[in-house]
Amino acid sequence: MAYSGAVKAGGPADVHELQALMISKVAVGPMDNNAYLLRCRATDEQLLIDAANEPRTLLDLIGRDGIASVVTTHQHGDHWQALAEVVGATGARTYAGREDAEGIPVRTDVLVDDGDILRVGQVELTARHLAGHTPGSIALVYDDPHGHPHVFTGDCLFPGGVGNTWGDQGRFASLLHDVETKLFDRLPDETWVYPGHGGDTTLGAERPHLTAWRERGW
Rank of each mutant, 00 (worst) to 15 (best):
A6V: 12
G11D: 02
G11Q: 04
P12V: 06
D14A: 13
A20W: 03
K25R: 11
V26R: 04
A27P: 02
P30Y: 03
M31A: 14
L38F: 14
R39V: 15
A42M: 10
A42R: 15
Q46L: 07
A51C: 06
A52N: 03
N53H: 15
N53T: 12
N53L: 07
P55R: 10
T57A: 14
L58G: 02
D60Y: 12
D60W: 12
L61I: 12
L61T: 08
G63F: 02
I67R: 07
V70R: 02
V71K: 06
V71D: 03
H74F: 06
H76E: 14
W80F: 11
A82G: 03
L83K: 00
A84Q: 13
E85D: 13
E85R: 12
A89T: 04
T90G: 03
G91E: 01
G91L: 03
R98C: 08
E99G: 10
P105Q: 04
V112S: 03
V112F: 03
D113W: 03
G121S: 03
V123N: 00
L125H: 05
T126D: 02
A131D: 11
H133N: 08
G136Q: 04
L140W: 04
V141M: 11
D144K: 01
P145R: 00
G147N: 11
P149R: 13
H150A: 06
V151Y: 09
D155Q: 08
L157M: 07
P159G: 15
G160R: 07
V162L: 13
G163Q: 10
N164K: 09
G170F: 11
G170S: 13
G170E: 14
A173L: 05
S174N: 11
S174T: 08
H177I: 00
D178A: 13
L183K: 10
F184W: 05
F184K: 04
D185Q: 12
D185S: 15
D185Y: 05
D185T: 05
P188G: 10
E190A: 15
E190C: 14
V193W: 08
H197N: 09
H197K: 09
H197S: 10
L203R: 14
L203C: 13
G204H: 09
A205H: 13
R207C: 09
P208T: 06
P208F: 04
T211P: 00
A212G: 10
E215Q: 15
W218P: 05
